[in-house]
Simulated scan of single mutants.
Amino acid sequence: VTHLTNYHLAKFLEKHNDKNKLDDVLLKVENISKCESLHAFYNILWKYETKECFYCGKRLSDKRIATHVDHFIPWSYIQSDNMWNLVLSCQSCNTKKSNKLAKSVYLEKMFVRNDNLKLTAVHNDFNYYSERKLEALYEYAGMNGYVENWSP
């Protein structure tokens, strides 16, 4: 959907912009749909969460290279970095999960994790969070092509 939307936006911009400025405009459209650095989220999650991979339970290293921040519901679906959708994972799980949706057992685990994390009031993202919203996004992702229920 994002690629289709960006394609139509690019076609619109081609019609209404000077060809000399078009490359700059299209580059901005492309950059809108890129994931930002998750380093700030890593620091918060590392401070308040257990030091275990959300998926396999493996003890995480405090070396940033070995510990990843993963979008529970793939970023390619939500295209937003929300604390309530981010988890710490080992490099292996994050790489293997990639752009897949985790099995529903992890959704239940995510509810518990978010309840605990929201009590710390560490981030404003929880002002707009609800289990119902997360569950609906998870279900919609499953209905929109993210059907491979991944687990380690």
Rank of each mutant, 00 (worst) to 15 (best):
V1D: 03
L4A: 10
N6K: 13
H8N: 04
H8S: 04
L9T: 05
A10M: 14
K11V: 13
F12C: 14
L13A: 13
L13K: 01
E14V: 07
N17L: 12
N17G: 10
N17W: 00
D18R: 10
K19Q: 07
N20F: 07
K21A: 15
K21P: 06
L22R: 03
L22C: 12
D23W: 01
D23T: 09
V25P: 05
V25T: 12
L26C: 04
L27Q: 10
N31E: 12
I32A: 13
I32P: 09
S33V: 09
C35R: 15
E36W: 03
L38R: 06
H39P: 04
A40E: 14
Y42K: 15
N43G: 09
N43D: 14
L45N: 00
L45E: 02
Y48S: 02
Y48P: 01
K51Q: 04
K51I: 00
E52H: 08
C53R: 03
C53M: 07
F54L: 11
Y55L: 10
Y55F: 15
K58V: 14
L60I: 01
S61G: 02
D62M: 04
K63R: 14
K63A: 13
I65E: 11
A66Q: 10
A66T: 09
H68Y: 12
F72E: 00
F72N: 00
F72Q: 00
P74R: 07
P74E: 03
P74K: 07
W75V: 06
S76V: 09
S76W: 06
Y77F: 15
I78N: 00
I78E: 08
S80H: 13
S80L: 10
S80M: 12
S80T: 06
D81F: 00
N82H: 06
N85S: 03
N85Y: 02
N85F: 01
N85M: 03
N85W: 01
L86Q: 10
L86V: 10
L86P: 04
L86H: 04
V87Y: 00
L88H: 01
C90G: 03
T95F: 01
K96T: 15
N99A: 14
N99I: 11
A102Y: 00
K103I: 05
L107Q: 01
E108C: 01
E108V: 00
K109W: 08
K109Q: 13
K109M: 08
K109I: 07
F111Q: 05
N114G: 11
N114A: 05
D115P: 06
N116G: 14
N116W: 04
N116C: 08
K118S: 15
L119I: 03
T120E: 14
T120V: 10
N124S: 03
D125P: 01
F126S: 03
F126Q: 01
Y128V: 09
Y128C: 11
Y129S: 07
Y129G: 07
S130Y: 09
S130R: 09
S130L: 11
R132Q: 15
R132V: 07
K133N: 02
A136G: 07
L137C: 07
Y138T: 09
Y138K: 07
A141M: 15
G142E: 12
M143C: 12
N144I: 00
G145S: 12
Y146N: 06
E148L: 10
N149Q: 12
W150E: 04
W150A: 06
